[in-house]
Amino acid sequence: MTMTPIDDTPTGRNEAGDSPDENGLERIVSRNPSRLGVGRAGPRPRTETMLTFQADHGRARDAVLTTVSDAFVEDLDLVKVRTLVEDKDQYLARPDLGAEIPEETVEYLHTQCQQHPDVQVIITDGLSSTAIEANIPDLLPALIDELDERGLSVGTPVFVEFGRVDVMDAIGEELDAECCVNLIGERPGLRTAESLSAYMVYGPKRGAPTAKKSVISNIHAGGLPPVEAGAKIADMLAAMVEQEASGLDLSEGDREFQKG
């Protein structure tokens, strides 16, 4: 068996003396988010490099497959509902079912939640429960304060299990909200499983096209921090109320954060 000699750094790459340009290698490794300069064992990755990759993938899978705990939902005093989806497998295979709520849930929402709010806040596990647990404790109170400051009434926050982005259309329509924001866990990457998006719609109605929706994405400690995100989301919701529009119907200057 032949092996490229490596140093002892965690990424395991070619030994200093072996490289024609050690400074060049350092520069390449340090300035790149990609897994570069990782070295090799024959034609395969070094063991440590491979295990690091597997650990990152494991974290991402866990974020997808685990659910937000009941204790978390209770601590934040959220009204909890579920979509037409029955379990995680079905959630992944049937996005259509994750956008609708059962008939009895509609009645339950009417008894539990304030009607006709300016802004209905929805929190949805989406593809990362980790993103919810990591960001919502800071983001939710910040968002509510910021909306208060802008004179917008906030409805009763709802937590949706097995929800898709468009579940906000159904819930917002039922509660007759002027705007709806869905704080939803993004599909995890290998770098972070904590990224959250805020999707927003003016005049929520079932079947509203994607082009009518606004989004602020990449919300996590290493991206747009949750407290800052609260202010940005509130700004966008205020613009939506003022212009009575969302998505591509919003004036260009107010669509600034859509790219995320």
């Binding site: 490229t4 070619n14 072996d18 490289s19 024609p20 340009d21 050690e22 060049g24 290698l25 390449i28 570069l36 300069g37 070295g39 090799r40 024959g42 034609p43």
Partner: peptide, 12 residues
């Protein structure tokens, strides 16, 4: 692969 393969600094 040769011994020097896998080293990106070949191309610097």
């Amino acid at each position: 692969l040769t011994d020097r393969a896998g080293d990106p600094t070949i191309f610097t």
